[in-house]
Write a protein that binds this DNA or RNA. Structure first.
Lengths: 205, 205
DNA sequence: ATATATACATACATCATTGTATGTAAACAA
DNA sequence: TTGTTTACATACAATGATGTATGTATATAT
């Protein structure tokens, strides 16, 4: 059984991505070898090199499975016109992200890999640029939503939407990082919702 | 020149730590070999294995040089009794940390290594626990200071010091991460001070 | 029905890395 | 002054990892 159908080949590709995630998680990206991934996926390195150019290529494929949906959801949650409570939209977006982390093992593990099991050097260093620009994209959309909240009179007086968005973005960046690092769950994972609510109350009228 | 005096040996030790920092920064911790470090330090692997058990041991030695002073400074800045503005103390602590990152190449590089050039797996995974507990220590001290601020009437009404501290801690965690990733400096490094001021104004009366 | 491209598995050559074992000259203690 | 320990350098043995080259059976196109 050497040559497979297209559907079978796609299954193999997915199996390799899943295997990579599993191995990255326990060994870290750098210490993971193609042989590790192949063994986990039940194939040989030949299969991996057929589907992916090298480890980075595989890494990017894994990353996309989580980040493309994130962008979509953000647009759906934040950029809806004519919402009666933009502030709620922001809160819902943050809550939704946490909820996804809670529900999706896949997403959770990929976040963990990207945050504490990957070294951003050499070929990986350009991922940082993507993260930064991604981040400013998020901030911009949050800022827009804060501006709408201001027009609706939801905000305390004298608060600059742009600065609010930056503060929220940094808060959430920190929360995600601590959420991921808090494997025991006692410190941050359980209270994430409370932290978000408090953060939003700070700026609500 | 084989056997050196104690002072000379200590210099060698420091040279190895410095070299490790330089190499970790460009190659990442995992991809860095003892030979790389030895070459950078102008010694052989023999010297490194004499002073350090292995790469982790060396990593911890490097880390301590930055984090022991941090704890001291935090205590000095936050836990001063009878300050007339606890809120200012918190702001000064955050500002001071950023200032140190700006001024000390060594500190900056070690933060960068720990945040985006190290994979927390296997032997390194217990560092995460240290970070978490370190973090809750910081939050506790900030909470204490917020409580003092509340007693002095510096805070807006109805704000819980503990929650404020958590929010501040997450904000600052996020800021440090973005500060480090923002190598160009344009996004976060230049406006860090403004972001901190805004964050503090959000809770000041 | 045959040719060709596909989806892998296998084999190969090369280089990198680790820990330790051993060597050694100078510092230090007695 | 003579051990003895220190502070390394050198040598060794074993293993791991990469990328590519090659093999091959089957799906698919014509």
């Amino acid at each position: 059984m050497v040559r497979k159908t297209k559907e079978n080949a796609e299954l193999t590709r997915q199996a390799i991505i899943h295997a990579a995630r599993a191995v990255f998680l326990v060994r870290g990206v750098s210490r993971t070898t193609m042989e590790h991934i192949a063994a986990e996926a039940g194939v040989t390195r030949g299969a991996i090199y057929w589907h992916f150019k090298n480890k980075i290529d595989l890494f990017h494929a894994m990353r996309e499975q989580v980040f493309l949906p994130l962008i979509d959801r953000m647009d759906d949650t934040l950029l809806v016109e004519g919402s009666d409570s933009p502030l709620r939209n922001i809160e819902n977006f943050l809550m939704g992200t946490i909820q996804i982390l809670n529900e999706s093992i896949e997403t959770r593990q990929i976040y963990e890999i990207m945050m504490i099991k990957c070294e951003y050097v050499e070929d990986f260093s350009d991922v940082l640029q993507q993260i930064i620009s991604n981040c400013s994209g998020i901030t911009a959309k949050i800022a827009l939503t804060y501006e709408r909240a201001r027009l609706k009179g939801e905000l305390k007086e004298g608060l600059n939407p742009e600065q609010l968005a930056q503060d929220t973005n940094l808060f959430f960046t920190g929360l995600l990082h601590m959420w991921v690092k808090d494997a025991s769950g006692t410190r941050f994972r359980q209270q994430a919702a409370d932290l978000i609510r408090f953060h939003m109350q700070l700026r609500a009228k």
